[in-house]
């Protein structure tokens, strides 16, 4: 159909998450039409990111530098090391950071327990999490895995490991989006929010 190099580009783009064959084709032709300089810059960005970025040696968030480096949050002395927020993916760190509500540190598991996908505790950064509790004087672990069955199972698993340690374990609440309307909430979320209702003083 296309020249081999074009087809190869489309195939490579199509392997990216969330990009189907049609989008891959569109992006490929956009790149081909744009100035050579733009394409070079994109290629350079990808290689640079891939070589410069590594996992933070402490929390397994993304970090920039040689292997063994720590991320900006872990090296920030103003951060409260007694509170540790456990999330599945680096993008969850970004989501929580945007709230501005959390001044503690993070631990990125890099996934959730899912036997169907062949992911068990050994494939996650669980051992590294346990090692941090004592070493960093953590007083509270906040389990912020996704509110789906795999995330819940992962939280349950971590809670059963952590109960032997002198640390408080909490789970993020699920409920209604703020500023929204009740009528637009789905039944499941609304049901959970009702279950987790609180008394007003």
């Amino acid at each position: 159909m296309y020249a081999a190099s074009v087809q190869e580009l489309i195939d490579e783009l199509g392997r990216l998450p969330g990009i189907g064959p049609k989008s891959a084709q569109r992006i490929a032709f956009y790149i081909l039409k744009s100035p050579a300089e733009d394409a070079r810059r994109l290629a350079a960005c990808i290689t640079a990111a891939k070589t410069k970025v590594t996992w933070c040696a402490r929390c397994f968030n993304v970090a920039e530098g040689e292997a063994g480096v720590e991320c900006e949050i872990c090296t920030d002395p103003r951060r409260d090391s007694s509170a540790l927020c456990v999330v599945e993916e680096p993008r969850d760190v970004v989501a929580i950071e945007k709230t501005g509500e959390f001044r503690g540190r993070y631990h990125v598991l890099q996934g959730a327990i899912s036997p169907i996908d062949g992911i068990g505790p050994d494939q996650l950064r669980v051992r590294e999490l346990l090692a941090r509790i004592d070493a960093e004087g953590v007083k509270e672990v906040i389990l912020c895995t996704n509110p789906n069955i795999e995330g819940d199972a992962t939280a349950l698993y971590l809670a059963s490991l952590l109960k032997h340690l002198p640390v408080k374990v909490t789970r993020i609440a699920s409920g209604l989006p703020v500023g929204g309307d009740l009528e637009y909430a789905d039944e499941l979320t609304l049901g959970r929010a009702l279950e987790g209702r609180r008394e007003l003083a």
């Binding site: 327990i113 036997p115 062949g118 068990g120 505790p121 050994d122 669980v126 069955i149 819940d152 199972a153 992962t154 349950l156 698993y157 059963s160 490991l161």
Partner: peptide, 20 residues
Amino acid sequence: AAKGALRGAMAMTMDVWDAK
């Protein structure tokens, strides 16, 4: 995946799925 026997962390993971 256990192929007949639970090894290492698997037993505790099984506890979690039992609970769910």
